[in-house]
């Protein structure tokens, strides 16, 4: 199937007929401002959602960890709950929360005297709104992973660090974070692969808009519209091959970064 998608990327299809077109799709993609725009949006989205979300999860996990089992279960469940709900369904709810006229978010802001915001129709803000929703929904999974990994760190290491005079902050950065490296690597790689393909939020909330080229159009959404709206499967295949290489490059870089530090 990988072979067939690569082969398809070099073909053009009309009404069931296929024609070999060589590199034409790729030439088109690299000249296409819409594709570069979607690549940029995808990168901004992924970099905000994955490292941002993991950093937040790290802080929350540090606060949850070492509390009583009941407290841990309560907070972990609360954070995890949104991720069992379909993203498409959650997007419908956020669409209503973000509603510029009657939405609850603008209501909360109005309590602080802030003017109503067009969360999804203002091109400057729309991508941020999608990111916010994704982070709130996704942090719970990272928290569960990180607290589990923190539980596997032997307490003697902390005692030793304490004897050596390390403060709490220093213990966190010099003992906890380095020892979480395998888990962080997993979260980064899986997070990048998943979020690079972001689609449902865009499909339900903004349809790639507002504006042209769309302020929230991602590569995943562009592939979908090339394939199933414009019915250009060849172009969509070529776009997905480019997406694959982008993901591959990021995965390799992440493996390098996380493996380069000292082994324990």
């Amino acid at each position: 199937m990988v072979v067939s998608v690569i082969a398809l990327a070099f073909q053009e299809m009309y009404y069931g007929q296929t024609e070999w077109v060589g590199l034409r799709h790729f030439e088109w993609i690299f000249k296409d401002p819409q594709f570069w725009n979607s690549m940029k949006n995808t990168l901004v989205y992924t970099i905000a959602t994955v490292p941002g979300g993991i950093l937040l999860a790290l802080v929350l996990s540090e606060f949850i960890f070492r509390r009583s089992a009941r407290v841990q279960v309560f907070y972990k469940s609360a954070y995890y709950l949104p991720s069992v709900v379909s993203t498409a369904i959650l997007s419908l709810v956020w669409l209503w929360i973000y509603n510029p006229f009657y939405g609850i978010l603008n209501f909360f802001l109005s309590l602080f005297g802030i003017e109503p915001v067009n969360w999804l129709t203002n091109p400057q803000i729309a991508l941020f709104s999608v990111i916010l929703m994704s982070i709130i929904g996704g942090v719970g999974v990272s928290v569960v992973f990180l607290t589990a990994a923190m539980g596997a760190i032997p307490t003697e290491l902390y005692d030793a660090a304490k004897i050596d005079g390390a403060g709490e902050w220093q213990r966190f950065w010099s003992v906890t974070v380095p020892l979480l490296r395998p888990t962080l690597l997993y979260l980064f790689v899986v997070g990048f692969i998943g979020n690079f393909q972001v689609f449902e939020q865009i499909y339900i909330m903004t349809q790639g808009g507002p504006g042209y080229p769309g302020a929230t159009e991602t590569v995943g959404y562009l592939i979908y519209s090339s394939a199933f709206t414009s019915l250009n499967l060849g172009l969509a295949a070529a776009q997905s091959v480019v997406l694959f290489f982008a993901i591959l490059i990021f995965s390799v870089v992440q493996f390098r970064v996380f493996a380069s530090e000292v082994e324990y």
């Binding site: 199937m1 997905s240 997406l243």
Partner: peptide
Amino acid sequence: LMLPSFILIIPQYQ
């Protein structure tokens, strides 16, 4: 497993 699922959707669809 590392492969993005999006890349497989088009051949699967075909």
